[in-house]
Design a protein around this nucleic acid. Sequence first.
DNA 1: TTAAAAATATGATGATCATCATATAATCAA
DNA 2: TTGATTATATGATGATCATCATATTTTTAA
Lengths: 195, 195
Amino acid sequence: MTALSKKEMTHQRILQTAAKIIRRDGFDSLAVADVMKQSGLTHGGFYAHFSNRDALLAEALGYAGAESAEVLRQNLAQRISEGVQPLTAFIEIYLSDEHLNNCTEGAGCPVAALGSDFFRLDATTKAVAGRLIEAYVEKVQQLSNQTLSRESAFLLTSTLIGALQLARGLKGTDQASFYLTASREDLVQRYSDIQ
Amino acid sequence: MTALSKKEMTHQRILQTAAKIIRRDGFDSLAVADVMKQSGLTHGGFYAHFSNRDALLAEALGYAGAESAEVLRQNLAQRISEGVQPLTAFIEIYLSDEHLNNCTEGAGCPVAALGSDFFRLDATTKAVAGRLIEAYVEKVQQLSNQTLSRESAFLLTSTLIGALQLARGLKGTDQASFYLTASREDLVQRYSDIQ
DNA sequence: TTAAAAATATGATGATCATCATATAATCAA
DNA sequence: TTGATTATATGATGATCATCATATTTTTAA
């Protein structure tokens, strides 16, 4: 059990703040001074923790992914313990009204929140993004009890992320939750026999 | 045939430049002075054409959508004239290697390029985004010869946009074109009997 | 307790940005 | 051609931003 040093704890606190900001406002809206202030620190001290803003973005994206994975793990365990099939549980959690509305709060999926910026990232941050995507594909494959091929798992992942992103884009109209609900039910039905 | 006034032509030129920039660099990276310079104008004159930067973003997103729709229409007409089924043609065009690589050039899909920012937009621009999404759903439904329900058309649209976005996020790795090709072939197969 | 080391704060620099008031240039109607 | 109108340019303002050199505070080790 490695106790975190003071500096490591501060580092983690900065990451947590940064992860929240990029999920809510996007990569470009993250201002170093802002992150530090919201972490209870002054902005000049930032460079004792990160070599520059890009380094923070890369770590923050990874942190956001880890946060989401942990919350997902807990939600999945809960639903599975209630007797829901793993893949069904995943679909229902990912396309839940809660996840639709959690654009800004909590630990929503960073791929849905930031995915269209991935191709614009610098190499280091893009590598982190790639790992997040692969982690989703692997998780889906695992939840299908390896029934789905890697490509099929990618396709379902694409559908889930695309549907959530589009529904969020329609938020405020009736269409948002109509499409989301229909997608959720259709996918649960479609994948019900393969797990 | 309404001839465009000088001002209207300039307005369109600014929009074209802005559409190119947001597709390539994202909404936040668009700088007014930059748009004007790349349009061959000085930045101060901007406010004779748009009330502010947000107004430009809203119009530029609409312009990008119209550009993409036009290019898509042409590509579809070409493929359909060669005997390809409409929905198959759409899937193959949308998930083509060309579209994967056209993040920055040409008239690629603005939803794939900007979709994760949609929920963050101001009301006016978000309304434009919503119209773009609905247009895609309607187009898919139309290409299915109305065989697909609106919800099913939304789901296919989500899959296409999600798959392109994720593949772009993996660009530079082997996985990108592997997943893209597999997705394209799987979807063509899956939707081959319903058109 | 005190010196050394580590962590954080202060304050500044140069760059970029949206916006706008005003000036010049281009167009058009008489 | 001339005057009026429209379109574009000039130049400035205040705000925000990443970065960093240096100072202060806090922690750690003796």
